[in-house]
Amino acid sequence: MMIILDLLSILLICLGLFFFFASAVGLLRFPDTLCRMHALAKADNLALGCVILGAMYQQDDPLVIGKLFLIWAVTLLSSATGGFLLAQRIRRKFLAREGEV
């Protein structure tokens, strides 16, 4: 039983690291802000979810598991809101520039 949990943990954390790597590459290589946000807002949260799920399998204490889940939930919410605000700002800037031309 422990071995299965350990294997699941390792698998999930490795998967999470892969997504983190992918989103870092996207952040560095994508051409404009909207594409880069796409990499950050999607791949990063998926990666964090995988890592946190992997960490949960190593915990016995339900309180710690709850805290880990809370971290993920708050990060999801913050990154969604932050991404929306950034995109809104970019759109407004774009519209303002269109209006000038």
């Binding site: 708050v74 919410l77 913050s78 969604a80 809101t81 929306f84 605000l85 809104q88």
Partner: peptide
């Protein structure tokens, strides 16, 4: 701020 930010604040 738009409704999304207000929703965020209501939860946070």
């Amino acid at each position: 701020p738009g409704p999304i930010f207000r929703f965020y604040m209501r939860i946070m």
